[in-house]
Computed example of a mutant assay.
Amino acid sequence: MRIRLTAGEAVLNATLDDNATARDFASLLPLTLQMNDLFKREKYAHLPRSLSAGGESRSSYEIGSIAYWSPGPDIAIFYDHDGQSIPAPGIVILAEINSGADAFKKYDGAVDVTIEAVD
């Protein structure tokens, strides 16, 4: 499944991973979230509810990864890499942005991001 993220004038396309957590995330769409900055590497926001387990937990990410962090429950969009690993319990990758994740660098603070499914 493809999704679209809109933040200000930036419109980015992403592809959902094939795992139970990503499918549960898709059931929440469309969503508009106020996403805050963390460590100048990611935008994050609290989700309205926890997602089901089923994706592989990992401690690393790539630029363009959209990930779920269960303790929040939060979603994070990684737009830069600082070389640090993600603390336990790790993240589950929900999707990968096809290109242009660095568009989030221009938003120093919070930004509203709309995430929707694309046919």
Rank of each mutant, 00 (worst) to 15 (best):
M1D: 10
R2N: 14
I3R: 05
R4P: 00
A7R: 08
E9M: 08
V11W: 00
A14G: 13
T15N: 08
T15A: 14
D18K: 08
D18M: 02
D18Q: 07
A20M: 06
A20G: 03
T21R: 01
T21V: 02
A22C: 01
A22G: 00
R23Q: 10
A26F: 01
L28C: 09
L31K: 05
L31M: 10
T32A: 12
T32W: 12
Q34Y: 01
Q34T: 13
N36C: 11
N36G: 13
N36Y: 10
L38E: 03
K40A: 15
K40C: 13
R41N: 13
R41G: 09
E42C: 06
E42D: 02
Y44G: 00
Y44K: 06
A45Q: 07
H46W: 14
H46Q: 13
H46Y: 14
L47A: 11
L47F: 06
L47N: 06
P48Q: 15
P48T: 15
S50D: 06
S50T: 14
L51S: 08
S52R: 15
S52Q: 14
G54E: 01
G55F: 00
G55P: 01
E56R: 12
E56N: 05
S57W: 04
R58G: 04
S59K: 12
S59F: 08
S59P: 02
S59L: 06
Y61M: 04
Y61R: 07
E62C: 04
I63Y: 07
G64P: 12
G64H: 03
G64M: 02
I66D: 04
I66Q: 01
I66G: 00
I66C: 03
W69G: 05
S70I: 10
P71G: 06
P73S: 14
D74C: 13
D74Q: 14
D74Y: 12
I75Y: 02
I75R: 00
I77Y: 03
F78S: 10
D80G: 10
H81D: 12
H81Y: 07
H81F: 08
G83V: 03
Q84A: 09
Q84M: 04
A88I: 03
A88N: 11
P89A: 08
G90R: 08
G90V: 02
G90L: 01
V92T: 12
I93R: 14
L94W: 06
A95L: 03
A95S: 07
E96C: 02
I97M: 05
I97V: 13
N98H: 11
G100A: 05
A101Y: 05
A101M: 10
D102Q: 14
F104C: 08
K105E: 13
K106M: 09
Y107M: 01
G109D: 14
V111M: 09
V113H: 12
T114Q: 14
I115C: 06
E116P: 09
V118H: 06
V118G: 03
